[in-house]
Design a protein around this nucleic acid. Sequence first.
DNA 1: CATCCACTGGAAGATATGGCGA
DNA 2: TCGCCATATCTTCCAGTGGATG
Length: 405
Amino acid sequence: MGRFTRRRSIFEEKDALRDDYEPDSLEARDEELDAYTDALQPVVDGWQPNNIFLYGKTGVGKTAATEYLLSELEADCRQYDDVDLSIVHVNCNTLNSSYQIAVHLVNELRDPGRQISTTGYPEATVFDMLYDELESIGGTVLIVLDEIDNIGTDDDILYELPRARSNGYLESVKPGLIGISNNFAFRDQLSPKVKDTLCEEELHFSPYDAGELRQILRSRAELAIRDDALDQDVIPLCAAIAAQDTGSARQAITLLLRAGELAGNDDAEAIAESHVRTARNVIETERVQEGMRQLTVHGHLVLLAVTAHATRDETPVRMRDLYPLYRRYCDHLAVDPITKRSVHDHLGDLTMQSVLERHERNAGARGNYYEYALEVPMTAALDALEDVGSFDDIVADLRHRAPQS
DNA sequence: CATCCACTGGAAGATATGGCGA
DNA sequence: TCGCCATATCTTCCAGTGGATG
């Protein structure tokens, strides 16, 4: 008997559950689509486009609605000779300045042979290049800036682009900005001069409720999953978990996908509730490990120091106790230590990523301070630290020390 | 009820890295 | 090669915080 045997797959068309899948229709967003359509109307009429801002948490259909509507808009514009529409889409995920966004817009518009690097030019030069590229396209250009809240307070580009025409930098182009933000508060941190122009049209996408998520999941599952491979309670459970957690369709769908994979590994006939619950933990751990992998050397050393305290049952720790251990590890690895103040920043970062938890303590005349502890399972922290590879011996030592395991 | 401790958090500046055009 | 430019990371400096203590 061979090691491998063919098994009946849970999935029919797994791609329909992946992040990049574009469904033919958008479930449960009728009102939003109507409002969005109205906001885009000037494009078809040949006017200067509105600037549009979309707000709403991740996974509530902002990007999906944009892609869906813009492709329809492109198709519909083709029947009017006097409307020449182009669309540029940039995800600002890793871009945290106006400069970076401008560079990426230029590269998006230029052909592969003429790409520019992400540093080195004066800011004004990059803007000039951007205007040149826009001019050479002509017509109406919709610029979609996804996850725009990443740029924080540096909103120059949001000020410049809408005004480029009236300032004489653009002649034959009618530019329109579509900004997509995950963060509702972003709107308020924009400088006032930007807020005026940019928020001409504001569209709010609210989180999906459990009923809407069930609707979405059913339509996807119909394509993705074999007819009899789904226990009855699975979709309601995925929907309920996601609705309570974030209201995100992406979360609900990923949950279903992972549950299906787990069911497959189990050789199960169908996805069951238990697979969903396990999938939830798997996703959580993956998220944390991914976050920890992105840290710098000192980030790792700081986490190592906290983890070491945790193995000795000495968490929560305060700075005063943590810093000396951090220094010892630096010595051991012949790394130049950074100051307390910088360690403090790393602790803040780790807290932001939900890797550490932090509590304020107050000892009155003996000062107030923060205490830190791991917010993830110790094994997850050790696994992630081991992945780094530069201090295997220390991690191995900590594993011994750690309770149970 | 003022004081005071032990940091915290903001800001500005230093340093290093990598890239630009001339 | 040199003088600029942008960015990431760290350092230096320092005012501000807030509840237990006397």
